[in-house]
Amino acid sequence: MTKPESEWTWKELPVGNVILEPGNASSYRTGDWKSFKPVLNKELCIHCGLCYIFCPDMAYNLDEEGYFIADLFYCKGCGICATECPTRAITMVVEEEK
């Protein structure tokens, strides 16, 4: 959405409240829902990509060095990546106060 839902008037809504902009969920910040964040120990990482596969929010992306890194704009801190990591390279740490 181009603006917060609390600013839309009824006249501006598309017929049937259809969302016309494909993929606009990518502008939705879910990263501020978390209390823990994943931290990667690159020395233990074997580049298997299981964190990328299991992440329910598709927050993981491959960086230039070949590591999968969680995008904290989307990461909700669920910890599935840390649980699935076969080498325990990912640990969940308390998010610092903003």
Binding site: P4, E5, S6, W8, L13, G16, N17, V18, I19, L20, P22
Partner: peptide, 11 residues
């Protein structure tokens, strides 16, 4: 397009 999306009380 998306049909049948979720709507919060705000909308």
């Amino acid at each position: 397009v998306t049909m049948g999306a979720f709507a919060l009380p705000a909308i």
